[in-house]
Simulated scan of single mutants.
Amino acid sequence: MFVVTLTYVADLAQVDDALPDHIAWLDRQYADGVFAASGPRIPRVGGVILARDLTREDLDRRLAADPFHQRGIAEYAVTEFAPSRAAEGLEPLLPRP
Rank of each mutant, 00 (worst) to 15 (best):
S84P: 07
D66F: 06
E80Q: 10
D53E: 15
S38E: 00
D53V: 07
I49G: 01
L94Q: 07
A77L: 09
L26G: 02
F68Q: 01
A13W: 00
E75T: 12
P83V: 09
L63P: 07
V34W: 06
E88P: 03
R62Q: 14
G47Q: 01
F35K: 00
Q29I: 01
F35P: 00
D60P: 11
I42Q: 13
L19H: 08
L26E: 13
L12G: 02
A87Y: 10
D53Y: 07
G39W: 00
D16L: 12
F2K: 01
L26I: 12
R71F: 02
A51M: 09
A37M: 09
D32H: 11
Y76C: 04
A18Y: 01
I73P: 00
D60L: 14
A74D: 00
E57S: 15
L26H: 06
D66K: 07
Q70H: 04
R96F: 10
L94M: 12
E88Y: 06
L59F: 04
V78K: 06
V34T: 07
D11S: 09
S38Y: 02
V4C: 09
F68R: 05
G89H: 03
V78S: 04
D17K: 14
Y8A: 05
V4N: 02
H69G: 00
D32R: 15
A24Y: 00
